[in-house]
Amino acid sequence: MTIYLPIAELPVNIFTLLALGIAVGFISGMFGVGGGFLMTPLLIFLGVPPAVAVASVSTHMAASSFSGTLTYLRRGLVDVRLGLVLLTGGLTGTLAGVVAFMLLRRYGQLDLVIAVTYIVMLGTIGSLMVAESLRALLREWRGEKANVKRPGAHPWFLRMPFKMRFRQSRIYVSVIPVVTIGFAIGFLGALMGIGGGFILVPALIYLLRVPTLTSIATALMLTLVTMTAAILMHAVLNQTVDAVLGLVLMVGGTIGAQFGARAGQAMPAERLRLLLGLLVLAVGLRVAVDQIVTPADFYAVSIDEAAR
């Protein structure tokens, strides 16, 4: 059974889309990430124009992150104050990302920039996660205790001016790195069609030293707001949000996420991080291979939106 996507302007099998949503939702529920970094390339592979894929995935991310945020809010794990400070940077970053998206598309370099950003971000984060979780697994295998790092002094960037206390996260740090992290996540999210959860969570844990669960909960809240803003901005500036595509994806995604979360809870944390690291690395490598291997056709045709 096929369904015609009114904005992407092509027919797609509805079950393929649902299965895609469920599969990506399962992974995102299992690892506590948005899954946009998987969803966007898969949609492009199905023939959805990249601009429509990036914009429509943000609806799916808004839905699944809202569902997650509600759960964490009930358990009182969201650091709303930290979230709001991250957001001041995040929203500016999202707007900058959408504008950059528009400019790059005009100059024909959007695909390249998206690909290079994917390779760099996924390659770096993936390698770091794999290395870190392998070390943890090795320690466990040797029977050593994990050495919890508790350095007395904060690194230099947390000692910058404009300090602020975030009670829920039990930290007292400068707002400058917090806003900068927010900006970077918002920018990358709008440009790459990713929620940035898999970048934000490690950033909060390792850079700002926020407790793990609070990091995940706050990252989800941030994803919710930046993705809702991304929907609006893409709809107004680019007119590339396909509501039908988004609806099918989010229905599949929210169902898949529930089963994924259950599967994730049954697995030790280090192994989970290793798996996610490998997955992130694999996606990054796939994009890299596409960019490096000699293309079958040296020419590509794009439609000038301005002429429409």
Binding site: T59, H60, A62, A63, S64, S65, F66, S67, L70, T71, M227, T228, I231, L232, M233, H234, A235, V236, V241, A243, G246, L247, M250, V251, T254, I255, A257, Q258
Partner: peptide, 16 residues
């Protein structure tokens, strides 16, 4: 854009 965003939030809420 608003309608799409609201739809996404509604789906998330129902799923939750």
């Amino acid at each position: 854009g608003l309608a799409t965003a609201l739809m996404a939030l509604a789906v998330g809420f129902i799923a939750n």
